[in-house]
Design a protein around this nucleic acid. Structure first.
Lengths: 338, 338
DNA sequence: TTGTATGCGTTATCAT
DNA sequence: ATGATAACGCATACAA
């Protein structure tokens, strides 16, 4: 079933059928209704390959999502979809592996779909540096700061990870802690981990506290990694009274590990996380965490991209505020003991 | 950059270039190496639209995933990707909204990519009944039993939700509970919820316990829904000593609600979940739950699909065993009180 | 307003 | 082994 068959069935030519299907104005009322009736009847749909092959410029916005089991991104996608329904732009959402190269993927998909703009949910500066130049449309990286890359078509919307981590650690220090462990990602491979690590170091230095790498453990952003690293670290530093986990999932793994080692949170050890995932409100204890403002991230990214796509504005780099969410997982050492 | 340009650059014709790119055997060593060198040089990639437009039959396997924030499906996808790398079949993974029509989407995508087979991660019998007939290739529904649909090309691999729910409730009953609340999904809209509900009822009846709908609350599979419904239910039945939650996320919401109402799990109230998500091992208390065997689900589904695609075998309907995972969230009433 | 014809980039069927 | 050429299904410039 092609538009040729449709033309035969409707008595009109393929040109008219195509025009009806694409909502062009220069078709008569009667032609429109007759063609549409036949379309309904056969349940016809255009062949997307032929369509995109023919079209020189598409009309969609491409969204590349790094990682499928990332709750933050999942909610971000939901928000974006809401925003997109208010516009005439269809969203093409493409999920790739956490460790895959998002820019290479974007280039490939761009050739197929010719998007008007690209939204990257997560990304690594390394990949952008290597091949973003091959891209042709305005793009924005969400979650990572791409300011330093200085590409003329590449914007970014992010929270200040360094300051976020700084405030998290300072929250612990203000609560009277100085034996603070840090559980994070690989700071040599993940830009986010690097910045959060820097924020930590800043906080320690600013408060004249010593911090060496024996208090720092590197791993993935997962429950299991948090559990393992917390268990390890407790062997070396049983005097730990507080933990900064660079992700809520790490924090949860760590809390469980502490429990299994006979330490209760927050009575024996305080833990602060990062992200503000939904689970943080339901966990026992409720997680104190640096909460990302997902709605704001989505909103800012989307309008920023539209500004560039529609208005031809130059790339911008925006920062969305975070908030320190006080839960039940941090105890002030100056308050009464259990 | 098209194969035409490539032909010019390499001195060969488009035919030869195409043959090289598709790994055909009837090309000379020299032609192969020369063309490949040019391909490398320009970083050329085939235009997917033109390719799929031309190709009458594709070579991939289509995976339709219902819902992006479903951890069970996320791990299922990972497993499937592992399995697929052992074969020559590329996987096309398409995530759609939890409430979207997976069959309609499959039909649409099939027209574009001409897959050899389709894997549905989740699905509703209603949608299959309505339009699966328009499909042309072997398919398997994972997680739902499609036996009753009786389509000749539609297989399914699922765990027996009814028996699973039965065992969950019986686990509570055996522990001495008889004031058991049930928190689930909408049994009129979700096949899974319906079966788990049936399993509950079976367990009550088999144990000669009374069960009326005032002990049952319906909602979404989310923390928030579990929290809300547990809070509500506690108003009506403060004598509740045990809860069966039809999903781990509901269980976690419920546990938090109980805590906020001054009830501790498992000392005051026992809770059992369903799914065996990763969080169930890290939550405090560790969740007792009906654990789905994700690896087995993936393995069985994939080989089943290949059996049909390659071997031309008829559709089958398999059941993958689950396991009752004992955590820390259920207390036996006969054991010593706190 | 409608019809006709060309080309999008690729694969495949012919010849050579 | 290689080259020329006809589709694949659609959008669109042009003609009517």
């Amino acid at each position: 079933m092609t538009i040729k068959d449709l033309a035969a069935a409707s008595g009109y030519s393929v040109g008219t059928v195509s025009r009806v299907l694409n909502g062009h104005s220069n078709v008569s009322e009667t032609a429109h209704s007759i063609v549409m009736k036949v379309v309904e009847e056969y349940g016809f749909e255009l062949n997307a390959n032929a369509k995109y092959l023919k079209q020189q410029s598409g009309t969609c916005i491409l969204v590349i999502v790094k990682g499928t089991s990332n709750e933050l991104f999942a909610t971000l996608v939901e928000q974006l979809q809401l925003l997109a329904t208010d516009t005439r732009y269809p969203l093409i959402i493409d999920y790739i592996d956490e460790d895959a190269n998002e820019v290479v993927r974007a280039i490939q998909l761009s050739k197929e779909r010719k998007p008007l703009g690209i939204l990257f949910l997560g990304g690594s500066n390394r990949h952008f540096r290597a091949s973003f130049a091959q891209t042709k449309v305005p793009s924005v990286v969400v979650t990572n700061d791409a300011h330093a890359l200085d590409f003329p078509r590449l914007s970014s919307v992010s929270t200040d990870d360094q300051v976020g981590a700084y405030q998290a650690v300072e929250h612990l220090i203000r609560a009277g802690h100085n034996n603070i462990a840090v559980l994070g990602g690989d700071r040599t491979r993940s830009d986010t981990s690097f910045l959060r690590y820097q924020g930590c170091v800043d906080a320690f230095q600013h408060n004249r506290l010593h911090f060496d790498d024996s208090w720092y453990r590197t791993g993935r952003y997962s429950f299991a990694s948090g559990y393992r690293n917390m268990t390890d670290l407790l062997q070396i530093h049983p005097e730990t009274t507080a933990v900064f986990a660079m992700a809520d999932v790490i924090a949860i793994g760590a809390i469980r590990a502490l429990w299994d080692q006979g330490k209760r949170v927050p009575y024996d050890v305080s833990v602060i996380g990062y992200d503000g995932l939904r689970i943080s409100d339901y966990f026992l204890p409720k997680l104190s965490t640096i909460a990302q403002q997902v709605e704001a991230l989505a909103q800012r990214s989307f309008t920023l991209l539209l500004d560039c796509v529609e208005g031809g504005l130059p790339a911008r780099h925006e920062t969305v505020p975070f908030s320190l969410k006080i839960g039940e997982s941090v105890r002030s050492l100056s308050s009464l003991p259990k």
